[in-house]
């Protein structure tokens, strides 16, 4: 039995997830001064108890520590993710899921469709299944989830949970491990090695966590559930259900 949580505390674990995805997405953009500044800021904010502080599910301070000069980062980024010739860790789902020599495959189309259903589209000059975009997409779904919670729309919130789980299961989660392996093997800088570690760990853990929550809510989920049936067959969800789902059984110590 839990004491009545404040709204803020109810949302807290989800906020951590939202911010984690956001930060990871940012880290997979081409590095510039902004990125360095971001990490510094985030580290400063994180864990501060004041209002307006940031909560994260990943150790941003460790990433910050591994930050090095911009030039080295840019070179490493290019080697790993861009080219011009050999791309050591192509950051595209297609490459890992469909065909190692191909980009713009069926997966790309499916991912684009997912985005479109949420009224967004790829904003980079890249195929839609770029890692930064997929991470940011989960961020978006998670943010919608939090907004729904804050508004008391528990069915909607649960639906977003389900969709996050689905996206991780059919897309991001399927290739993050192999991708992280490639980054780890080829990165020159400590920053990208740690980033690979953190991303992989977080995403895989988050997938499991989501599965647990959905179990607790009694929600059916499964891979490839794309018959468009968005109805949550749970009857009316109550705040208490969400509290139980979100706060019970978490063993990550937050």
């Amino acid at each position: 039995m839990y004491e009545k949580l404040s709204d803020d505390d109810l949302l807290a674990p989800e906020r951590c997830r939202v911010n984690a995805y956001k930060l990871l997405a940012e880290c997979f953009h081409e590095p510039d001064e902004e990125l360095a500044g971001l990490l510094t800021e985030v580290t400063a904010d994180e864990g501060s108890d004041r209002d307006g502080g940031l909560e994260l599910d990943i150790p941003a301070d460790e990433l910050n520590e591994a930050m090095t000069d911009l030039e080295s980062l840019r070179v490493d980024y290019a080697r790993l993710f861009v080219g011009p010739f050999e791309v050591l860790a192509p950051p595209y789902e297609s490459t890992y899921v469909d065909d190692p020599d191909r980009v713009m495959t069926e997966s790309t189309v499916e991912v684009t469709n997912e985005y479109r259903q949420e009224q967004v589209d790829i904003g980079l000059d890249e195929p839609a299944d770029h890692v930064a975009a997929e991470l940011e997409f989960v961020y978006l779904l998670a943010r919608h989830e939090v907004e729904a919670l804050a508004a008391g729309e528990y069915e909607t919130a649960a639906d977003y949970l389900r969709r996050q789980h689905e996206f991780l299961g059919t897309h991001l989660g399927r290739w993050i491990g192999e991708f992280a392996d490639d980054v780890r093997s080829h990165a020159d800088t400590e920053f990208y090695r740690r980033l690979a570690d953190e991303t992989e760990r977080f995403v895989e853990r988050d997938g499991r966590r989501l599965a647990d929550r959905l179990d607790r809510l009694g929600i059916q989920y499964g891979e490839g559930d794309d018959d468009g049936d968005d109805d949550i067959d749970t009857g009316d969800l109550e705040r208490a259900d969400l509290v139980a789902a979100l706060h019970g059984g978490d063993d990550d110590g937050r």
Binding site: K22, H29, E34, L54, A150
Partner: peptide
């Protein structure tokens, strides 16, 4: 990024064009 101390109304809109965005 979401900060602590949230309160408030129902979400609308997406607000994606903050800083870097994919």
């Amino acid at each position: 990024f979401m900060k602590t101390g949230a309160a408030g109304a129902v979400a609308a809109g997406l607000g994606l064009s903050f800083g870097l965005s994919s």
